[in-house]
């Protein structure tokens, strides 16, 4: 039986009077690909931010990889993010004045020691071996997303989080990115939590949960 990597109990996040995530009980086994679906404002990004240690819950418990995230300090959460989590953003969020390889090395730098050869290898794995020295402005949306993926996996995270990673891509690029993620997951065996509002993208996961107004309303197994 697989170990549980994410476990929440009554996890809640409020912003003033607005409750973005109502008490949520969730378990994610290690190695699972979980898709989180819902409309805009349903609380799916809030959940991802909490699980990734980017935000703090208002109430409840949150264990990720054996770490009680509520007990961690600001710098403790930073350490958790760099050692345990890889994040792929919808807007890519690459540093504009660094090249593709330097953007990947940035994550290495904050984690431990930058290794250019390793960063090149990561970019080659995502099919960008020919774009190492290009800056984000010189790359297409799909290419930028692949740099983002290389940066997310460079430190061998246990948990890969995706916040609408294909939200800005066309269908062809979306399929390429999803296939790439599937390959990488098979090799690296990380757990994936992917927020999306695209049913087709959600179908790449093992399980999909549906949030509505901050409440888990449904979940289903997929046959990817």
């Amino acid at each position: 039986m697989a170990t549980t990597i994410i476990e929440t109990g009554g996890l809640t996040r409020s912003y003033g009077d607005i409750c973005a995530l109502k008490p949520l009980d969730l378990q994610v086994p290690e190695g699972e690909w979980l898709s989180v679906m819902g409309h805009s404002g349903s609380g799916k990004s809030t959940l991802m931010n909490l699980v990734g240690g980017l935000d703090r819950p208002s109430a409840g418990s949150l264990m990720v990889g054996g770490e009680d995230l509520l007990a961690l300090s600001e710098d403790g959460l930073a350490r958790f993010r760099r050692e345990f989590v890889g994040i792929i953003f919808q807007q890519h969020h690459l540093v504009p004045y660094l090249t593709a390889v330097e953007n990947v090395m940035l994550a290495q730098y904050f984690h431990s020691v930058p290794d250019e050869a390793e960063a090149r290898s990561a970019l080659e794995r995502v099919g960008l071996g020919h774009r190492l020295k290009n800056r984000p402005g010189e790359l297409s949306g799909g290419e930028q997303q692949r740099v983002c993926i290389a940066r997310a996996i460079i430190n061998s995270p246990k948990l890969l989080l995706g916040d609408e990673p294909t939200g800005n891509l066309d269908h062809k690029s979306t399929v390429m990115i999803m296939e790439l993620l599937k390959e990488l997951r098979a090799e690296e065996r990380f757990t994936v939590v992917m927020v999306t509002h695209n049913q087709e993208v959600a179908a790449w996961g093992d399980r999909t949960i549906y949030l509505d107004d901050g409440v888990l309303v449904r979940e289903e197994r997929t046959n990817s």
């Binding site: 980017l54 930073a78 760099r82 969020h93 904050f110």
Partner: peptide, 16 residues
């Protein structure tokens, strides 16, 4: 600020 936020998101602590 987006650059700083990104650095924090990928694990930079206050010292870094």
């Amino acid at each position: 600020s987006p650059e700083i936020a990104l650095m924090k998101a990928v694990g930079a602590d206050r010292f870094q």
